[in-house]
Design a protein around this nucleic acid. Structure first.
Length: 665
DNA sequence: CCACTTCCTGCCACCCTTA
DNA sequence: TAAGGGTGGCAGGAAGTGG
């Protein structure tokens, strides 16, 4: 044996076994470092894998934290895409899902899925495969399609195009297959599969989008209120100062989606369309004194949860009003001493959508639009408006100069609220120091990542991290001495921090509140409770005028208004809220009306009395005083399987309740 | 258009933890 | 034991949805 010979060995099984191992780890939840929330479903995965397979995730994870939320894709579709990412296969996809799958693949920048449409169209039109070229008798268009496909593949190094190698039988009518069967199951790669797409992707090279039809702008689902309807609210205060509160101590309504709109809400963290070359542009660190082109706003304080928007939200413009527009690149011009300690958001707030297009240059670079709080221009006392003030130009005045440093904080003054948007969490924004100027108090701290890294092996690490996350959900904006808490994800403002905390679970889904009677899960306990009452049919709200009972306040109020022509919100008490008999909920708000113990039935059907002197049932054994607690995702419904949810009770003190036990129970 | 449902958020009472 | 934070119910307006 010649010792100088070089030996080269290739493990041809490596990639497959590696992928299999990664998929196994995913299924077991091992080393998963990201949770993707789609609709009500959670998907654990590995950032590296998603990033490698999806240009969208590649860019997203530059700024995103451990939890991301996709609101432009259905969970069922995403499950398929995720299965593909971890198995290189798409198995048994229903025909009616295919278009949506392809569309979603485009949005996520998953080349194989995005390109499924081209080969599939050929499969539908010819009996052979596309592997060897167009069949005889094929139409010219098909031949051209083949040529273009082939050329595209050649242009990509013969790699990017997914090739349908086998299509055993194409059947589009097998609706009997449960959706669970659609989830990966390699053992099902048999002849009885409805549709099988097998790829021969040589390399995982991204597809060049220009060669294909333009990526369709995703339109968020109608029920995605966070992304569309609510966040689309123009960043102006309500027209009536006390619209949402009766409290006279709060003359100013909270800021509504200050300086933000759905797309720019998401734009603060969401990546843009995959670049033309399919590769993500890394974050750019630029000297602060020069024009900075930021492909994605790098965030030093990455939010723990990210709600992501479709890559291109421009098509929302007709529906949205002042809207933030995400462009592939955002040109942010700062001068002087920049707020380099703060990430810069690409969020853009516009008063008129048309401005957007005017400010998009040919190369996709967009000048940053800004909003300005104008307390003095308010038309009503106590109101202030947010309006477009100007576009920060390269010659803007030097307003971001650090003014003073004290108590470990640096105070700077900005002249645009857009820069406020870019501030990291923990900054306190004093909005009206002067005309169009803002004082920002930035806590001076060491590199958080570095600091955290030093604590990797420390027990304190988890605690600190938790604390960091807890305080990474909002900004504080102080206007006229009044503090508003701004959600970092959707930019909604809150007067009460507790309201923001409660709201933030909508983004993070840190806690989940499953209905005990169906499979729905809610981000707020109250939503769950109200929903469960619909299951029980209990009518707690009673009209004092006619004695009719109603299931909730809204129905009751509607009744009083329409039937009795009175205002239930008036001074006189027109209704009574009776204790809840069917759910184990807190029993305190209404106890004061009755001096007698109120019989209550708990979840297990045990009847007990509420001691009017105590807030919890006096005779209930093993009764949890704090009601149903949030449960983990995996714990859902298990405990309910053998329980009788409702039992008829004879303990009712009166017949005023007409709640109906659902038939299913 | 209307009825109904769901969402939202300020407010508040209660519970739990901590000093 | 008091203080403070967290939790969740309630009120009532707003928005969404379906007939």
């Amino acid at each position: 044996m010649d010792s100088k010979k070089l030996i080269t060995a290739t493990d041809t099984q490596y990639s497959g076994s590696l992928l299999q191992a990664l998929n196994d780890q995913r299924l077991q939840g091992l080393y998963c470092d990201v949770t993707v929330i789609v609709e009500d479903r959670k998907f654990r995965a590995h950032k590296n894998i998603l990033s490698a397979c999806s240009t969208y995730f590649h860019q997203l994870f530059i700024v995103a934290g451990p939890v991301v939320e996709l609101n432009f894709i259905r969970a069922e579709i995403f499950a398929e895409i995720l299965n593909y990412i971890y198995s290189a296969k798409i198995v048994r996809v229903k025909c009616d899902m295919l278009e949506e799958l392809i569309k979603s693949g485009k949005l996520l920048g998953v080349p194989f899925i995005a390109e499924l449409g081209i080969p599939l169209s050929q499969v539908k039109s010819m009996s052979g495969t596309v592997k060897d070229g167009p069949n005889e008798g094929q139409s010219n268009s098909d031949a051209k399609l083949w040529e273009s496909t082939k050329n595209a593949a050649k242009a990509m190094g013969e790699s990017g195009i997914p090739v349908i190698r086998q299509a055993y039988s194409v059947s589009f009518n097998k609706e009997s297959d449960s959706e669970t069967n659609l989830i990966e199951d390699e053992s099902d790669d048999d002849d009885d599969d409805d549709v099988i797409f097998c790829s021969e992707t040589v390399q995982a090279k991204p597809v060049t989008p220009e060669k294909k039809e333009p990526v369709q702008t995703p339109i968020p689902t109608p029920n995605d209120q966070d992304a569309v309807s609510k966040q689309a609210t123009p960043p102006t205060p309500p027209q009536q100062p006390n619209q949402n509160t009766k409290s006279q101590t709060q003359p100013q309504p909270p800021l509504k989606n200050m300086g933000s709109a759905p797309s720019n809400t998401n734009s603060t963290v969401a990546p843009q369309n995959p670049p033309a070359n399919g590769s993500a542009v890394p974050p750019v660190t630029q000297p602060a004194s020069v024009t900075t082109v930021l492909p994605v706003p790098p965030s030093q304080n990455t939010p723990s949860t990210v709600t992501t928007a479709p890559p291109d939200a421009n098509q929302n413009l007709p529906k949205l009003q002042p809207i933030g527009i995400i462009q592939p690149k955002t040109e942010l011009i700062l001068d002087g001493n920049s707020i380099s300690t703060s990430p810069v958001s690409s969020a853009v707030s516009l008063e008129q959508p048309t401005i957007t297009h005017k400010n998009v240059s040919f190369d996709g670079v967009q000048k940053k639009q800004v909003v300005t709080f104008s307390p003095g221009s308010s038309s009503k006392p106590g109101e202030f408006k947010i309006k477009i003030a100007d576009v920060v130009s390269g010659t803007s005045k030097d307003s971001s100069e650090p003014r003073r440093i004290m108590d470990g904080k640096k105070i700077i003054t900005l002249d645009t609220a857009s820069e406020i948007e870019g501030l990291s969490t923990g900054c306190k924004v004093y909005a009206n120091i002067g005309e169009d100027t803002y004082d920002i108090v930035i806590p001076i701290k060491e590199d958080p990542e570095e600091g955290l890294a030093k604590l990797e092996d420390d027990d304190e690490f988890q605690n600190r991290k938790r604390m960091k996350l807890k305080h990474d959900d909002h900004y504080e904006l102080i206007v006229d001495g009044r503090v508003y808490y701004i959600c970092i994800v959707c930019k909604r403002s809150y007067v009460c921090l507790t309201s923001l905390r409660r709201h933030f679970n909508v983004h993070s889904w840190e806690k989940k509140y499953p209905c005990r009677y169906c499979e729905r899960v809610f981000p707020l306990a109250e939503y769950r409770t109200k929903h469960e009452i619909h299951h029980t049919g209990e009518r707690r709200y009673q009209c004092l005028t006619c004695g009719s009972s109603f299931i909730n306040y809204q129905v009751m109020a509607s009744h009083i208004r329409s039937v009795h022509s009175m205002d239930p919100a008036g001074d006189s008490k027109l209704y009574r809220l009776n204790p809840c008999k069917t759910l184990q909920i807190r029993q305190y708000a209404y106890i004061t009306e009755s001096s007698n113990a109120v019989p209550v039935i708990n979840d297990g059907g045990i009847v007990y009395d509420i001691d009017p002197d105590k807030s919890e049932p006096a005779s209930a054994e093993n009764h949890s005083s704090d009601g149903p607690k949030p449960v983990n995702w995996d714990d859902i419904f298990i405990q309910q399987s053998n329980q009788t949810m409702f039992k008829p009770t004879t303990a009712e003190g009166s017949n005023e309740f007409e709640f109906v036990i659902p038939e299913s129970y």
